[in-house]
């Protein structure tokens, strides 16, 4: 899943070098932290969060019956 988000983010941003996806385990859920350059934040979030929502919907579809929830957080 990490690679999926990274692949998408790389295609969207202007500064691919600062794209990083970290997989963080928390007690109740697993969190994917997407780091991008400040200028690229808007590109991975999209108008009204549309891009972010699309990525989340892909994540949801990609791992249907997992117990732990997977969250995508976008970090500057």
């Amino acid at each position: 899943m990490q690679e999926l988000i990274k692949h998408i983010a790389l295609a969207l941003v202007d500064k691919p070098e600062s794209v990083e996806v970290k997989d963080v385990e928390r007690e109740d859920c697993q969190v994917l932290e997407l780091h991008v350059a400040p200028d690229d934040l808007g590109k991975v979030i999209g108008k009204q969060g549309r891009t972010a929502r699309a990525m989340r919907s892909l994540l949801r579809a990609a791992r249907p019956d997992q117990e732990k929830r997977l969250r995508l957080e976008i970090v500057e």
Partner: peptide, 22 residues
């Protein structure tokens, strides 16, 4: 089946992202 689950949310997401990416 996974893609069209919930009125095709994932399918729409896929389409939206691929359009943006390409």
């Amino acid at each position: 089946e996974q893609l069209i689950y919930r009125d095709g949310q994932a399918l729409d997401g896929l389409q939206y992202l691929l359009r943006k990416m390409t």
